[in-house]
Computed example of a mutant assay.
Amino acid sequence: MKFVIAGGTGFIGDHLSNKLLEQGHDVTILTRYPPKGKSGTMKYVKWLGKGDKPEKEMEDIDCLINLAGRSLNQGRWNEKGKAEILDSRIHSVEELIRIVSKLKTKPKVFINASAIGIYPPSEHAVYTERSENRAEDFLGTVVKKWEEKAKRLNDLQIRTVLARFGVVLAKDGGAYPLLKIPYRLFFGGKIGSGKQWMSWIHIDDVIRALLFIVENEQIKGPVNITAPNPVRMDKFGKTIARVLKRPHWFSVPSNLVKMVLREKSTLVLEGQYVLPETLTTNGFSFLYPNLYSALQHLENIG
């Protein structure tokens, strides 16, 4: 199959493109900054620049995946930073709509990255793709606008999937390398109340889920990309401590986190209990359904 990945040079994009190449697929990466002097089977096409026409390199593709957008962890959430986070997502989808409208043969499926931040933070609610509650904070507003824009691909008769990612765990990126640092230094412990939910997923299951979506034509609309067993933050920390054989004792109060991170503190002090109902009802099987086994694998234990 022929895949095009927008924003494919990032954390998830690297893992996905490597797996696709391993399976023998053709992969084209849309990026602002194509690498120079890099050879191999991966094709890089420049986009989002003045005069760029990536559609010339995208005929007869089977799947278009959009992972583009400024990282939520990059910089402060001041007015400028928040505008860049939103604009980078909206602009990338608008450009993909323009590109696809120019193609003679449309891709069979479009997968747009999204986030479980669309659901309101709660210590008690359980969310699936059928849940209608929407968060009204900054992240929730970004995700809603992002998804509404991506849904316009449906107008072009393309199967559109909104991949709502949870907290992705990997050795080389995402939240885990940062979360385990205090435990390596023997200062790990509860963050805030510890009661906030963390809906996590192992990077290998992220990639497998995306390929599962491509292969199963009945799947469309929102899909929660999370493991089936969310945990509270305190248990998450205790599991890191157990795997690394370190203590879990040092508490970081909510007020301190808010003082340091300000509005961005919601990323660690609030959470949602999100279940991957669409994946499980369609027969997807997780390699790492439980946190302990997932972290053991990341640490090459067991």
Rank of each mutant, 00 (worst) to 15 (best):
Met1Leu: 08
Val4Trp: 00
Ala6Asn: 03
Gly7Glu: 03
Thr9Ile: 06
Gly10Gln: 06
Gly13His: 00
Ser17Met: 12
Ser17Lys: 15
Lys19Trp: 06
Leu20Phe: 01
Glu22Pro: 07
Thr28Ala: 03
Ile29Asn: 04
Leu30Met: 10
Leu30Asn: 05
Arg32Asn: 11
Lys38Ser: 11
Gly40Thr: 02
Gly40Lys: 02
Gly40Trp: 02
Lys43Gly: 07
Lys50Gly: 08
Gly51Arg: 04
Gly51Ser: 05
Pro54Ile: 15
Glu57Met: 12
Asp60Leu: 07
Asp62Arg: 11
Ala68Pro: 03
Arg70Gln: 15
Asn73Leu: 12
Arg76Gln: 11
Trp77Pro: 13
Glu79Pro: 06
Lys80Pro: 06
Leu86Ser: 07
Leu86Met: 13
Arg89Leu: 13
Arg89Tyr: 03
Arg89Ala: 06
Val93Gly: 01
Glu94Asp: 12
Glu95Ala: 14
Leu96Arg: 06
Leu96Tyr: 01
Leu96Asp: 04
Ile97Ala: 01
Ile97Arg: 01
Ser101Trp: 00
Lys102Gln: 04
Leu103Ile: 02
Thr105Met: 06
Lys106Leu: 14
Lys108Pro: 02
Asn112Phe: 00
Ala113Asn: 00
Ser114Thr: 02
Ile118Pro: 09
Pro121Ile: 10
Pro121Tyr: 02
Ser122Asp: 12
Ser122Asn: 10
Glu123Thr: 05
His124Lys: 15
Ala125Asn: 15
Ala125Arg: 14
Tyr127Gln: 13
Arg130Gly: 10
Arg134Cys: 04
Ala135Trp: 04
Gly140Leu: 08
Lys144Thr: 13
Glu147Asp: 09
Glu148Ile: 08
Lys149Leu: 08
Ala150Gly: 02
Asn154Arg: 04
Asn154Gln: 09
Asn154Pro: 02
Arg159Ala: 01
Arg159Thr: 01
Arg159Asn: 00
Val161Tyr: 00
Val167Glu: 08
Val168Phe: 00
Ala170Ser: 14
Ala170Met: 01
Asp172Trp: 11
Tyr176Lys: 14
Leu179Glu: 05
Ile181Phe: 05
Phe187Cys: 14
Phe187Asp: 06
Gly188Asp: 01
Ile191Glu: 02
Gln196Met: 10
Gln196Glu: 15
Met198Ala: 05
Ser199Leu: 13
Trp200Gln: 13
Ile201Tyr: 04
His202Asn: 09
Asp204Gln: 13
Asp204Glu: 15
Ala209Phe: 00
Leu211Gln: 15
Val214Ala: 04
Glu215Ile: 04
Ile219Arg: 07
Pro222Cys: 10
Val223Ser: 03
Thr226Leu: 10
Ala227Met: 14
Pro228Leu: 13
Asn229Leu: 09
Pro230Leu: 14
Val231Ile: 15
Arg232Thr: 12
Met233Ile: 06
Met233Leu: 14
Asp234His: 12
Phe236Lys: 08
Lys238Met: 12
Ala241Pro: 13
Ala241Tyr: 04
Arg242Cys: 13
Pro247Ala: 06
Trp249Met: 13
Phe250Gly: 13
Val252Ala: 05
Ser254Cys: 12
Asn255Pro: 03
Val260Leu: 14
Ser265Trp: 04
Ser265Tyr: 04
Thr266Asn: 10
Leu269Val: 05
Gly271Met: 10
Gln272Pro: 08
Val274Ile: 11
Leu279Met: 12
Thr280Met: 15
Leu287Thr: 07
Leu287Ser: 12
Tyr288Thr: 11
Tyr288Gln: 11
Pro289Trp: 03
Leu291Arg: 10
Ser293Glu: 15
Leu295Val: 08
Leu295Lys: 04
Leu295Thr: 07
Gln296Leu: 14
Gln296Arg: 15
His297Thr: 08
Leu298Gln: 09
Glu299Gln: 11
Gly302Tyr: 00
Gly302Asp: 02
